[in-house]
Each structure stands twice: as structure tokens, then as C-alpha cells.
Design a protein around this nucleic acid. Structure first.
Length: 562
RNA sequence: GCGCCUGUAGCUCAGCUGGAUAGAGCAACGGACUUCUAAUCCGUAGGUCAGAGGUUCGAAUCCUCUCAGGCGUGCCA
């Protein structure tokens, strides 16, 4: 609908240019927006004000000129056009024209809201990418919810999305993990002088050790590892522990309904020689130097504030070197767009990875890959903040959260704030099945509509399809508001997708649910007038469809009964 | 010190990429169930958009500075 108004304005301006009533002859960007106040109409256009400078005329004069040249026609959708304020052109849509929106919803069904904005372009989204050194915690949960919904949004916007998880199954933290499990195998506890420095102290390490000593087998992805059971075989312990914890993480993600297309292992970058190859090319390109027994990358050449160690004096690489190799591989796999969703505490990797990629001189754009960083999550329980310390083992896991508050509420809560904002996860609130809980508010709207359908069915009234629904009878303010909101769903998805801001969907759904509840309290759906009933049932069918489609983007269910 | 993020109603947060009189939910107060789910709705009240400059027809939004909080600034990831 908005696009139709935009093209009417564009045609009007063209005619002004053609007959010389506007001089600049330069088509401006035409912004159509929703007025802040209903009395200003259904759509507002600001173009007259933005043209004021080029035309050297008062915005209201330009607006009048444009309006005279807009041809609405007999069967047009516009009811009234007027000029208001500093030069807004306000449009009011004829009531009967809104029915087109409902017809579109019914025709598209589960596909309503999808677009082709992405033109089928390949995009890869990497998210979660937790180290296999422990269960997923609440921060990973936020990343999982945001990343997964960004994928769903991009997919709905016509992109060809690949979801990817990167396992850091090599490096110092993994060595640390192996030592921690070994210590537990030998009965050594934290505090003991033999306990490894910075060892992982969580209870789950004991579980890994017990399984290892019991010679259990774990299946994780394409890995099948049977424990050797020998507490002196550190390498065997490492392989087993990584597989064990990866399996745990996989199960957590499954419980959260998050799935990946590709799992990439850091260890394979070493075994395939990609890390060595990257180091060789970086040296060859002259961006490295040796100092203090280490090899450094001159990242300051690419905007970093200090140079960074690539190869430590003990011969191993720092984390960002395999990261560079990994991203080079992504580029070579043909992903001209890559989005990395990660916690803001890992922000410093961005400059290093991009610097490494630039230093390779491989024709990779400076701003590639793109990043979505989510800020910290704090957990409240009983009005107090729950402290998270991985090493001390006090730990709010994603699994605990899903078990306690349910998957729907967990996902919805993680998606209620924009990624840039810190998030306070109030466990008590998320568990409440009350009006304070926005998840229930939205889900209840869907269930309530289903309940109305059931009541209609009991009275022998069926929910109509378009030709049988008397949509021209719709016209109360609540009905028009609902239709307008439904009609804006596609552009909400597109905006949300292109800006990587899933929270726009949660806000939209709360607004739509609110509009429905208002409608429900003022208008009776099943009533004496059969034709009006059919029109309203049809409207609600469309509302339910959009609620369901929106919730699906969040990975939240749309129950028919509550 | 430097980099990134944040600062909007008592609280938690939106604000559609620069538009009209800045919004919603909680909390407070007052109302609405003989009715399709009261897990709902309606109304009242609540603001120096952290502060100061600047850019222009127009700024919560863009630029600069200041203040406050969070994160980072490892030969950890």
C-alpha cells in the first residue's frame, strides 16, 4: 500500500517536471511514513520539504503543485489528500481499498511477509561459536536467539542463508580443559597445589572425568570418540572432553530449536595446513616482524592501536591467526557477505581479523566480514543479580534457563532488546504466566482468535475465504488499525533483516496483539449480522496468520489454546 | 590513556535511519466481565530525550566536546 502511494507521488512529480511547474528536474528520494497522529491520515509524504532548497520555493507551495499533478483516478485507492504543517502531504486511504491487504495475506498464508530483497544472494551467518570447554551459558543463549532469528529474517527476505558454527577445538583453552579433566580423573580438586593454574572448576568437569574413566563413547557431529580411560593419556583426554562437551552443546542447541548447516573445526584448519599457509602469506607480504622470540603482525598498518603477536615464543599461534585462516576460507567458499554474531566482549577480534585479511592482499573488502555484537546479559533471580564465573563453576546455563522458563519465553526475552543494549534477564518475570509477561500477551492473542473460530464453528459458522467474506463492511477504527498493521508486516521484516535487529519483530508483535485485544473488547465478532461476522472472521484469520508468521521468525510457538 | 556500546516517564525499554504535539509495558490512581478466553480492555497522571555547543526549513536521531555506566585494550578466546 505504501509503495502504491509512493509511486503515485513519483508520477505526480514527473508530470510537474514535464510541464515545467517544478524546475529542478531531479527526482528526490520519496519518503512515505506513518503519521504520528491518526488525524493526519494514513500516510504522509515529506518530499515537498526536502525539495524546498532545490526549488527555492516554500514547501507548502511545492506540495500544492505536486498534489495538483497526482492522478488518483476513479477507482483509485486515495480518499483524500491534504497539505498540513510545514509541508506534509497527507493521504487518507479509502476504506474499501484496504481489503487488498487482507486478500494478499490470505493468498500468501505462511509466506506473507516474505520478500525478494536479498535477490537470492548467498550470505553466511556465524553465531554461537562457543568453545567446547563447558556448557552453553546465558550469553551464548542470547547469541543463539539473535543469530537464529537473523537467519530466519534474512531467509524470509530472499537471501540464501548458510548457518555456521565454529568450534575452537584447539589452542590454549582446550589444553587447559584437558588438564582440568585429567586433574579430576586423578582425584585432584581445586585448591590442591597440583590443580592446574586457571583450570576449569565447574562440576561438569567431574562428569566428563567420570565418563572418561568409565570408557564411555560419545557421538558428536561426525565424531565418535570412545574414552581410553587412561588418566595419563592427555591427548586422549582432550579428544574425549572436546567431543563430550560438543555433544552437550549440540543437545542444548537442539532444545533451543537452533540448527546449523555447517560446523567448522579450528583443528581442521591446522590439519589442512591453512594456518601455516596464512602465516606464510602474511610473512611474504611483509606485514610481520620478529621480536622477543615471537612473530608479530603489524596490525597498526590497518587501524589497530598496537601490533599483535601471531606466533608465541612457545611456537603456538594466538587465536586470531586460525581466525584469519578461517575467514579466508569463508571468502574462498564464495560468501561475499558474512555476518558474525558474537558477544561484545570479543569485540577486539574484529580489528585483528580484518587486519589479517587485508594483509593477505586477497581482494577482500575492508568492511568484510560484518559483525553483530550483543552486549552483556545479567541474570536476576529473586531481585538479585546472579553472578557468572565460568572458572569458579557458578554458571547459569542455557539448559537450566530453558528447563525453568520454557523455550518460548527464553527466546522471546532474548529478542526483546536490540543487540546493542545490555539485557537484564529476569527469571521470575519470564516464568510468570501473567499480563506482565509479553510472550503470553502475544501468544494469548493468537489463542484467543483460535478460540473465537471454535465458538463460530460450534454455531455452524465457518471462517470464510475472500470471495465470501464481506470485507467492504470493515471500517471501524480498530479494524482499520489492524489492517494497517498487518499491511506493514513485510516492511517490518525487511527493515529488521537488513539492519540485523530482531527486536523490531517482538515490538511489532506486541503492537499487533495490542491492536487485536482492543478490537476484541470493542467489537463483537460473532453476532446477529451474518455478513459483518464473516468480514470480521476473515479479518481475524489474517491477524492470526500474521501473528503466527511473526512468532515463527522468533522461533516461538503460536498455541491455539492456552 | 585509547577503542566500542549505552544514557529517553518512578522502573524496563521502543522511537521505522532527519519530520508534525517524543511513545509502549510495568508501577500509581479511577473505571469495564448475565457476552466469542478479564492471561484482556478503557481512562487519568507522569519528560530540560545525561549536559553544552554546532550542522538546516526541522535534531532524541547527524558532528564536536563534557559527564556517568558497561565491555575491551593478553605471547587467553
Amino acid at each position: 500500500m505504501k509503495d502504491r502511494v509512493r509511486s503515485l507521488v513519483a508520477e505526480g512529480i514527473e508530470r510537474c517536471f514535464a510541464d515545467g511547474s517544478l524546475a529542478s528536474n531531479q527526482m528526490p528520494a520519496i519518503v512515505i511514513e506513518k503519521p504520528a497522529h491518526a488525524e493526519h491520515g494514513d500516510f504522509a509524504c515529506t518530499v515537498a520539504m526536502s525539495m524546498a532548497k532545490a526549488e527555492r520555493k516554500a514547501p507548502r507551495v511545492i506540495a500544492e503543485t505536486i498534489v495538483k499533478h497526482i492522478e488518483n483516478g476513479e477507482g483509485g485507492i486515495i480518499g483524500e489528500i491534504d497539505i498540513a504543517g510545514p509541508g506534509f502531504i497527507n493521504f487518507r486511504i479509502k476504506n474499501e481499498a484496504w481489503s487488498r491487504t487482507l486478500v494478499a495475506v490470505e493468498a500468501a498464508g505462511a509466506n506473507f511477509g516474505r520478500s525478494c530483497a536479498g535477490e537470492g544472494h548467498k550470505v553466511q551467518v556465524e553465531f554461537v561459536s562457543a568453545n567446547p570447554t563447558g556448557p552453553l551459558h546465558i550469553g551464548h543463549g542470547r547469541g543463539a536467539a539473535i543469530g537464529d532469528t537473523i537467519c530466519r529474517l534474512l531467509s524470509a527476505s530472499g537471501f540464501d542463508v548458510t548457518r555456521e558454527f565454529y568450534y575452537n577445538d584447539a589452542g590454549a583453552q582446550i589444553a587447559n580443559l584437558a588438564l582440568s579433566v585429567q586433574a579430576r580423573c586423578l582425584g585432584i580438586e581445586p585448591g590442591d597445589p597440583r590443580w592446574p593454574a586457571d583450570g576449569y572448576q565447574g562440576d561438569y568437569i567431574k562428569d566428563v572425568a567420570r565418563s572418561y574413566l568409565n570408557r564411555e563413547t560419545v557421538d558428536a557431529g561426525d565424531q565418535h570418540v570412545t574414552a581410553a580411560g587412561d588418566p595419563n593419556d592427555l591427548d586422549a583426554i582432550r579428544r574425549f572432553a572436546v567431543a563430550y562437551l560438543r555433544r552437550e552443546q549440540d543437545q542444548d542447541l537442539l532444545a533451543f530449536d537452533v540448527h546449523f548447516d555447517v560446523y567448522s573445526l579450528e583443528s581442521s584448519l591446522y590439519t589442512e595446513g591453512r594456518v601455516e599457509e596464512v602465516v606464510r602469506r602474511l610473512i611474504e607480504n611483509g606485514h610481520t616482524f620478529e621480536q622477543d622470540g615471537a612473530l608479530w603482525l603489524r596490525t597498526t598498518d590497518f587501524g589497530d592501536d598496537k601490533d599483535r603477536v601471531m606466533r608465541k615464543s612457545d611456537g603456538s599461534y594466538t587465536y586470531f591467526v586460525p581466525d584469519v585462516a578461517y575467514h579466508l576460507a569463508k571468502w574462498e567458499r564464495g560468501f561475499t557477505r558474512v555476518i558474525n554474531e558474537q558477544g561484545a566482549d570479543h569485540h577486539s577480534t574484529i580489528t585483528r581479523v580484518r587486519a589479517g585479511l587485508q594483509a593477505l592482499n586477497a581482494g577482500i573488502p575492508q568492511e568484510w566480514p560484518e559483525y553483530v555484537l550483543h552486549q552483556m546479559v545479567t541474570v536476576m533471580r529473586g531481585g538479585e543479580e546472579v553472578k557468572i564465573s565460568k572458572r569458579a563453576g557458578s554458571y547459569v546455563t542455557l539448559r537450566d534457563l530453558i528447563d525453568e522458563v520454557g523455550r518460548d519465553a527464553t527466546r522471546f526475552f532474548f529478542l526483546m532488546r536490540k543487540p546493542d543494549s545490555q539485557l537484564v534477564f529476569d527469571i521470575d518475570l519470564a516464568k510468570q504466566q501473567s499480563l506482565e509477561n509479553p510472550v503470553y500477551y502475544v501468544q494469548y492473542a493468537h489463542a484467543r482468535i483460535c478460540s473465537i473460530f471454535e465458538a463460530a464453528c460450534d454455531r455452524g459458522i465457518s471462517v470464510p475465504s475472500f470471495p465470501d467474506a464481506h470485507v467492504y463492511l470493515l471500517g471501524t477504527p480498530e479494524e482499520i488499525e489492524l489492517i494497517k498493521l498487518i499491511g506493514s508486516f513485510p516492511e517490518v521484516i525487511e527493515g529488521s533483516a537488513l539492519s540485523f535487529e530482531p527486536h523490531r519483530i517482538t515490538y511489532y508483535l506486541q503492537e499487533l496483539a495490542g491492536a487485536f485485544h482492543s478490537f476484541y473488547n470493542k467489537n463483537r465478532v460473532i453476532g446477529e449480522e451474518k455478513e459483518l461476522s464473516s468480514a470480521r472472521l476473515f479479518l481475524l484469520k489474517c491477524v492470526a496468520q500474521v501473528l503466527k508468521n511473526g512468532l515463527a521468525l522468533l522461533g516461538v510457538s503460536a498455541p491455539e489454546k492456552m
